[in-house]
Design a protein around this nucleic acid. Structure first.
Length: 742
DNA sequence: GAACGTAGAGTTTTT
DNA sequence: CTCTACGTTC
């Protein structure tokens, strides 16, 4: 071990060996943060300061947690006698609550509701209250609920709120909380909140958990929210001889804080030294990942942000190619360019790991199409995860109901899947019955004279019995068979149904692995509920497609950062405030600093939002303009593209970067001169908004002439209500309607 | 009640 | 374009 310490630079070594008291490690991108965390844990064990299970390390994803454990194990000559507790905040809280639930008044078998469950629930509540129950309304309500919960605000606060939306939806919020209680279900926020409540309201539980750990480590501390901060405070292990200086080490980088939108507060990291007096501050500023040109570009961009502690990263890798820029006519050409580059790079050096990073998941499709055409194998991270597939949710819902019969969302999800003659009318009747008896749905099932409902209940009971006597994979097979799901899919005889069946068998295989690791049903279901999109990142995959958010914590030899356009990145929904733009900028910084050797930035002049509508002339992302010209080099391959006949052009790689530089000169778009301190957000360019005052006459391509009745919203979301002659009243999105004033 | 059709509406990031 | 909601038919 001591010779392993030699592999660390002085700062890193300090971060590893400063074991006692609070430590704040501000770790710049690529500065060996993961290394510090793994070595620190190994060091604590090796020095006999703690047994592995006395160390709690909180990471951002389950994958990172698992990897951390493995890396520590590899560092120690004899391996690990026991496992350190490495997990995400959410998984840790779930585990804690499985033990402590009764203390807090929950069943030990509580369900965990993910975003999808929450959304279904909120929509049904909105419907019940006769409110607009469209998906995006529900999403908005949930966002506010989540923020309110972490901020400690209640439905009563909503009632008195200045925000009319909150006042209107206060009963929805109240009903939502009540519904979770009856269902014995906790959402993601509740996992954190209830764990925090346990640690604050039950001193004996707190000291039990505090004594359990001797050292606490938190990675990505800049992305913790208020409740997670509370948890850190409450869990921080306090040594008997120095209770004022708990052994808590947090690691993070304020420049990589990208989750403020979901309640994270990077003020947590900026305030750490006040929150934990006597904290040791360690700065890791040497970057071991990227070449200096890449680092310079990233530094140039991030320096436009105001609220930072201001680390200055440097690299010993002075040599390196400039950051390349490619401007395509449209999004298809952009994707084609990237795909062909990848093809060439990969042929030249198959060992290279390459990433395509984008702002929104929807962007992945084009890249997938082109890469598939070129027969390049790639991996997409996130997007639509395995556990979000409907068939998977269905089968898991059977298990969830069997384990927790109060779980009404899961029960309603499978009540008539596969179809067993329990339609909307019957389901509605069941719910009314339950409400009138003030009984849970499960009990209403029992007393119902409806044979179909009774049969359904018996099916669940038989599942419960199976769970009592058979291993998990066999129970899943039983469920798949006895519910009729398997037959139902088989009878459909379509490729889709076949795929679904395959997925279900994959789930059973996962259950088998889980069982082999000795996990219980609950552990299996919890993991299914808490997997994150980033969890399917595979560091060994040669080519990866993912969002910038998922890319945090990764690195690649070659990175393509695509869609560098105003309105897409920074995203149009993030232009309202300087704070949002700064977060987009940090996201850009994260993207740039993923690259080790080569970095391409691309943008498209035209991009369709969805088929059929005309494309816009996109302005380059402001982040491109923030990179000094001398660091950029324009890729000229599009000349080849432009010269070839449309539809049959081929991209010819340019041999040397030097020749490119000579030919390309400076970037081509007109650079608007802006002074350094001019931070006013520039809106993305848009067609000039014509005004549609109520009463004015308009013309629509399909509906013909009409009169404007009302206008709702503003900007890109502006909706216009028009009374058409012959077609009645229609609500149209202004940006797509193509209305004409007459 | 279920299967199938058509019309209408709408894309940020995710533990 | 693609997903959902709702109407029509059996």
């Amino acid at each position: 071990m001591s010779n392993l310490l030699d592999q660390l630079d002085p700062r890193q070594r300090e971060a590893v060996t400063t074991t006692e008291g609070p430590v704040l490690v501000l770790a710049g991108a690529g500065s060996g943060k993961t290394r510090v965390i793994t070595y620190r844990i190994a060091y604590l064990i090796e020095q006999g300061l703690a047994r592995p299970e006395e160390i709690l390390a909180v990471t951002f994803t389950n994958k990172a947690a698992e990897e951390l454990r493995q890396r520590v194990e590899r560092l120690l000559p004899g391996g690990l006698p026991t496992a350190p507790m490495t997990s995400t905040f959410h998984s840790f809280c779930a585990r804690l609550l499985r033990r402590e639930a009764p203390t807090l008044g929950w069943k030990r078998d509580f369900s965990i509701y993910d975003t999808d469950d929450q959304q279904r629930l909120v929509r049904s509540i909105l419907k019940e209250f006769g409110e607009d129950d469209r998906a995006w309304v529900a999403r908005g309500v949930l966002e506010r609920i989540s923020r309110s919960k972490t901020a400690g605000r209640s439905p009563d606060d909503w009632q008195l709120s200045a925000n009319p939306q909150e006042r209107r939806h206060a009963p929805v919020f109240a009903r939502y909380r009540q519904a979770l209680r009856t269902a014995q279900a906790l959402d993601f926020d509740d996992l954190l909140l209830e764990a925090a409540r346990l640690l604050s309201e039950y001193p004996e539980a707190r000291s039990r958990w505090q004594r359990r750990f001797r050292y606490l480590l938190v990675d990505e501390y800049q992305d913790t929210n208020r409740v997670q901060y509370e948890l850190v405070r409450r869990l921080a292990p306090r040594p008997a001889d120095d209770a004022e200086r708990p052994n808590v080490c947090v690691v993070g980088d304020e420049d990589q804080s990208i989750y403020a939108w979901r309640g994270a507060d990077y003020g947590n990291i900026l305030r750490f030294e006040q929150d934990f007096p006597g904290a040791r501050l360690i700065l890791l500023e040497q970057n071991y990942r990227s070449t200096q040109p890449i680092l310079d570009a990233a530094t140039a961009v991030i320096s436009h942000n105001s609220s930072r502690k201001g680390k200055v990263l440097w690299s010993e890798r002075k040599e390196g190619t400039k950051v390349r820029l490619y401007e395509a006519q449209d999004a298809e050409q952009e994707a084609q360019f990237v795909a062909e580059k990848i093809w060439h790079y990969q042929r030249h050096n198959p060992q290279q790991r390459i990433a395509v990073l984008y702002r929104t998941n929807a962007q992945s499709r084009l890249y997938e199409e082109v890469l598939r055409r070129l027969e390049v194998a790639y991996r997409v991270v996130g997007g639509f995860s395995f556990y979000k597939r409907l068939e998977i949710r269905h089968l898991l819902a059977y298990l969830r109901v069997a384990r927790n019969t109060s779980d009404e969302q899961s029960l309603l999800l499978i009540l008539n899947v596969p179809p067993r003659g329990i339609g909307a009318v019957t389901a509605q009747g069941l719910r009314r019955e339950a409400r009138e008896r003030a009984a849970p749905l499960w009990e209403a099932l029992d007393v119902s004279p409806n044979e179909k409902l009774k049969k359904f209940r018996a099916l669940i009971v038989s599942l419960q019995e199976e769970l009592g006597r058979k291993p998990l994979p066999e129970v899943l097979e039983f469920a798949l068979r006895e519910t009729g799901y398997e037959r139902w899919l088989a009878e459909q005889n379509t490729p889709e149904a076949e795929g679904r069946l395959e997925n279900l068998h994959e789930l059973i295989a996962a259950a088998r692995e889980s069982a082999e690791r000795g996990e219980t049903l609950t552990e299996f279901l919890d993991r299914a509920a808490l997997v994150s999109d980033s969890d399917d990142y595979d560091a060994a995959a040669p080519i990866t497609l993912m969002t910038l958010h998922s890319a945090k914590g990764t690195e690649f030899d070659l990175v393509f950062l695509v869609g560098m356009e105003e309105g897409l990145f920074p995203h149009s929904r993030s232009l309202d405030s300087e704070a949002e733009i700064e977060e987009e900028r940090r996201l850009c910084y994260v993207g740039l600093t993923r690259a080790k050797n080569d970095l391409y930035l691309t943008r498209a002049l035209a991009r369709r939002s969805w088929a059929g509508t005309e494309a816009e002339t996109n302005e380059p992302s402001r982040f491109l303009e923030e990179i000094p010209e001398e660091l950029l080099e324009r890729d000229t391959s599009e000349r080849t593209v432009a010269a070839a006949a449309p539809g049959e052009w081929r991209y010819e790689p340019v041999e040397s970067a030097g020749s490119q530089a000579r030919r390309s000169g400076r970037a081509s778009w007109p650079r608007r001169r802006r002074s350094e301190d001019d931070l006013t957000p520039r809106p993305p360019r848009r067609r000039r908004d014509p005004d549609y005052p109520t009463g004015c006459e308009v013309r629509h391509a399909t509906f013909g002439a009409g009169t404007v009745v009302a206008v709702d919203g503003a900007g890109t979301d502006k909706k216009i209500v028009v009374q058409f002659t012959g077609y009645g009243r229609k609500t149209l999105m202004e940006k797509y309607a193509g209305l004409e004033r007459v």
